[in-house]
Write a protein that binds this DNA or RNA. Structure first.
Length: 387
RNA sequence: GGAUGGGUUCCCGAGUGGCCAAAGGGGCCGGACUGUAAAUCCGCUGCAUAUUUGCUUCGAAGGUUCGAAUCCUUCCCCAUCCA
């Protein structure tokens, strides 16, 4: 259940209560596709980096270890030893990312497993059944995420099918939640808005799905190749047509800049692989933009990644040391950077919430974006700070 | 002292007359990554430059040839074996 605590312009500050605890929003959901955040991050670690919600994936867990196995083991929470909320993505994104391995039909999608090539079918009912077996807190409707460059006719047809799939998803979830063997009988369902970069299709779709009284509403199909300006524009056009008294979730986004811009436009849930993936690839976030620790200029840099950061990496280790770990291919390098990046994102959200509570979100956002824009080169030194 | 194998661009290592500034790795340097087929992928790596081209390079010095990292001579090193 979502409680809107405050609005700053269109920006929403809220609280979302679930059977697994209350989520303070705006929130960043930490992505652990295979029931683990890549980079050797444990559940204990997540407690140290302010993680409120984890995200896992229907398609991937269906293939490995198999949702029935997770069900037999008591559901995802017990399986991965995490008692806070978990959102499962429906497999809709894999319809996009595994484009060469699938075929879309009205009944659903035929995939060739990316692991061994065996044929699998997933429609709305199958996706809900898998997610019910996984017993996540929040299930996502099964959708198609069309490419940003798809033409209007394609998108129109795709969105209409996604609507039909949403209704089937909801019916199936309602049914599953009444079954004896269901682990989480209060599993929530979020619908997903699509429409690529066509505002009228987006708005029309938003209006239709808003009538279904779902637990939350996502905007999908963004950050898949369009420009940032197009993404922000779509949010401005679309979000006002989604229910204010429900969470609004921008799927798969994004950079700290993207998040600040989207919060301003009314989004309160986010998820993104970037902090984890970039961390594994030595790119780390600072208040003065993203830096690549592999760069030679950090060879003798004795500073932490972000001097103002209180994460497990920044409290103890220098950029030079972590750079060395990357060069030496020590997995601690990735682990530290993933922890830092996730801490950075979760802290960013915390700061956003505090700023909204204190009615200074606009100033906060501006100050943050200014810092990112200046970059590490433009960072004020002790000397310039005194002046 | 004798026998054999070998010395290639930062490193390892292919190449044995032209298509060779020289395969392939590694390293170095740089880039990408947005509901994770990603601990991945891409580019660059002799010098100088207008993406054309010029110059220098394959242990050293000579030589053969229109043309040599590749063939010949001598020398210098290295490895293994025999004395």
């Amino acid at each position: 259940m979502y409680k809107l605590l405050k609005q700053c312009g269109r920006a929403k500050r809220g609280e979302f209560t679930t059977p697994h605890g209350t989520i303070q929003t705006p929130v960043f959901m930490n992505v652990g596709t295979l029931a683990a955040i890549k980079g050797a991050v444990s559940t204990e670690d997540l407690e140290n980096i302010k993680c409120q919600v984890q995200l896992s994936n229907t398609y991937h867990l269906h293939l490995r270890p198999g949702d029935k196995i997770v069900h037999q083991l008591g559901g995802l929470h017990k399986f991965m030893s995490w008692n806070k909320p978990i959102l499962t993505d429906s497999g809709g994104f894999q319809v996009f990312s595994l484009a060469s391995l699938r075929k879309i039909k009205e009944e659903g999608v035929y995939f060739a497993s990316h692991i061994d090539g065996h044929k699998i079918f997933m429609g709305p009912e199958e996706s809900m059944q898998i997610q019910s077996n996984l017993a996540s807190t929040i299930a996502m409707a099964f959708d198609e995420c069309p490419s940003a460059v798809a033409d209007r006719t394609y998108v129109q047809n795709s969105v209409e099918r996604t609507t039909r799939w949403l209704i089937r998803s909801k019916n199936e979830m309602d049914r599953l939640n009444t079954l004896d063997e269901t682990i989480n009988k209060k599993q929530m369902l979020f619908g997903i808005n699509q429409g690529a970069i066509f505002p009228d299709i987006r708005i029309e779709h938003a209006k239709i799905i808003s009538e279904l009284d779902l637990d939350g509403y996502a905007v999908g199909g963004l950050a898949v190749g369009e420009t940032h300006e197009q993404m922000y524009h779509i949010l401005e056009e679309t979000v006002p047509y989604l229910p204010k008294n429900k969470p609004t979730y921008l799927m798969g986004v994004g950079t700290p800049e993207n998040i600040l811009e989207a919060v301003e436009r009314g989004v309160d849930f986010f998820d993104c692989v970037l902090p984890a993936r970039n961390g594994r690839h030595a790119h780390v976030y600072t208040n003065y933009g993203k830096i690549n620790l592999l760069n030679a200029k950090f060879e003798l840099d004795d500073e932490p990644i972000e001097p103002e950061c209180q994460c497990p990496a920044c409290k103890r280790y220098s950029r030079a040391y972590i750079r060395h770990l990357f060069k030496a291919k020590e997995m601690l390098a990735m682990r530290l950077c993933v922890l830092h990046n996730l801490y950075y994102f979760n802290t960013l959200m915390e700061e956003i919430r505090t700023a909204m509570d204190e009615d200074r979100f606009v100033e906060y956002k501006k100050q943050k974006l200014d810092g990112f824009k200046r970059g590490v080169e433009g960072k004020p030194t002790n000397k310039t700070r005194k002046q």
